[in-house]
Amino acid sequence: MQRVNMIMAESPGLITICLLGYLLSAECTVFLDHENANKILNRPKRYNSGKLEEFVQGNLERECMEEKCSFEEAREVFENTERTTEFWKQYVDGDQCESNPCLNGGSCKDDINSYECWCPFGFEGKNCELDVTCNIKNGRCEQFCKNSADNKVVCSCTEGYRLAENQKSCEPAVPFPCGRVSVSQTSKLTRAETVFPDVDYVNSTEAETILDNITQSTQSFNDFTRVVGGEDAKPGQFPWQVVLNGKVDAFCGGSIVNEKWIVTAAHCVETGVKITVVAGEHNIEETEHTEQKRNVIRIIPHHNYNAAINKYNHDIALLELDEPLVLNSYVTPICIADKEYTNIFLKFGSGYVSGWGRVFHKGRSALVLQYLRVPLVDRATCLRSTKFTIYNNMFCAGFHEGGRDSCQGDSGGPHVTEVEGTSFLTGIISWGEECAMKGKYGIYTKVSRYVNWIKEKTKLT
């Protein structure tokens, strides 16, 4: 034993070699072989497995989906700052455009905790909710729209109204504003409101030439003092309507412009014939205590009207009353817009006519005020429907199939267009061939041609 100890002390290297040989010859039971080890760690190889990531292109799944990435790591994937920024906006807080917040056709661009709407022409605001041009839906104005110097929408209202708090709607500024039905039992019968379409306001006024200088022999019209197929109006439903009495009662109609003036057809009036105007009328054979009678003290036909040349060209006249009318729910003026808007309103496509005229061709006159909704007829169809001249200051309205029309005794009465609950004068009943005849239409004086003249002559002093 002493000898062994001496050998170990003198030859430590020998001992180490012996131990190493023993270990190498022993069977290893701690580690699995290569094949079995792979069965336990069965993990798919990654895209760049075996390579240094710093030297390969980034992978979106590896960089940002398996674990949260930084902007720089995302930049490695896209290799483009702009594309990385677009991805980053949604990656950080989701897609803010998912709810489609942009209105009126706006395009949404996502941002971090926010979004941006790219608005089409005519709109602005956070969600493109603000109209900035009158060309689109009248700028959301209830009545009139004008573009300011910086191309912003400025709404306005006709006389007797003021802008509401929203700067879009119009509200009454006087007790009985024009064009409004205020009798409670008839307010439910107000005709369907007309909503502004998209309009090209630059070209809204037709490029028409008034044929002022045409000389033409007097034409022989049949029954051209021209509501057939209409309905009984309720008291106060058309408070701007008046009836004219002269040699015979209810020979023509008219509309209240203001307390002192009536507008009617020029062919209705004769110099030297006494005319009485009755406002607030409903049943011409009954006294309903809503009527107001006034005498006409002055007749002003349009300066281009000449019955000797043509009885229905420039067929418009103004009547001055001896005493002002007292405005109330049964006696209310009709609204008159400017030339541009009167023309736009007419193009809405349908209007209402009213009167006490004959209820059928050569038949009896109506006792109760009649009204009828009539569609506008395109000019080409209008011209083809008659052998008589249709001037540019006239328009056609009615039904091709016949059966409904204005008729004798309705002449001078109103053709009105309702705009968001307020009625505007767009025409004056003038003439036609018979009444409600198939293929024939009622012919009306186009008020847009005469609004400046009306307003100039009827100013209240």
Rank of each mutant, 00 (worst) to 15 (best):
C335I: 00
Y22H: 09
G253A: 15
G230P: 11
W431K: 12
W240Q: 00
D110Y: 10
P120Y: 05
K146L: 11
L41N: 05
F224L: 14
D93M: 11
S217C: 06
E418H: 07
L372Y: 13
G402M: 15
F424Y: 08
E340W: 10
C382V: 03
Q2I: 09
Y341L: 06
N138I: 05
K51G: 06
K274R: 13
T186I: 15
E418V: 09
D93I: 10
E286P: 07
V183F: 10
P414G: 11
V228S: 12
T158I: 10
A37L: 02
I136H: 14
E86I: 12
N343V: 04
A37Q: 03
F345S: 01
H314L: 01
K234I: 15
G21H: 11
S187F: 12
P101R: 05
F196V: 14
E142V: 08
G403Q: 13
P44M: 11
K260P: 01
S187N: 07
K446N: 13
F388G: 08
L367E: 14
T290V: 06
N100E: 12
G272Y: 07
N166Q: 03
E285A: 08
G230I: 15
M437E: 12
T158C: 07
E340T: 11
V92N: 10
F123L: 08
T381Y: 09
D131G: 12
V242Q: 00
V331W: 00
C178R: 00
Q216I: 06
E82H: 05
W431S: 11
L327K: 04
E231S: 08
K188G: 14
F123T: 10
L163H: 02
F424C: 00
E54Q: 02
E231L: 08
C335M: 00
F238I: 07
I300R: 03
N147E: 14
R379A: 08
M65F: 11
S350Q: 13
Y444C: 03
G58Q: 04
K438W: 10
Y161K: 00
F78K: 03
N100H: 13
P175R: 12
K260F: 08
S354L: 15
L130W: 08
N59G: 03
G357P: 07
C102Q: 02
K339C: 09
H302P: 03
Q167N: 09
F388K: 11
T84R: 03
S187I: 12
G246M: 06
G105F: 06
V4I: 14
F87H: 03
Q143R: 01
S354R: 08
N393E: 07
V183N: 11
I299N: 05
G398H: 04
T16W: 13
N42I: 13
G351L: 01
C407L: 07
V263T: 03
A380V: 09
V228C: 10
I7G: 14
I17N: 02
L376H: 06
C128G: 03
G403M: 14
K438T: 14
V296P: 03
S448K: 02
V77D: 02
T276R: 09
A207D: 09
H34T: 14
N452E: 09
K234W: 15
T342Q: 03
Y22T: 11
E281R: 11
I429G: 13
G179I: 00
W88Q: 03
V77F: 06
F144A: 00
G58P: 14
G21L: 13
E98H: 11
E418I: 11
N283Y: 11
K311E: 06
V326Q: 14
N304G: 10
K293E: 10
P333R: 03
R358K: 15
V174P: 02
Q90M: 11
E159F: 07
T461P: 14
P235G: 06
G179A: 01
S406Q: 14
A266Y: 03
G21W: 08
H34L: 08
C335F: 00
I428W: 05
Y330I: 04
K311F: 05
A207P: 15
G351D: 01
S365L: 08
E456V: 07
F55R: 08
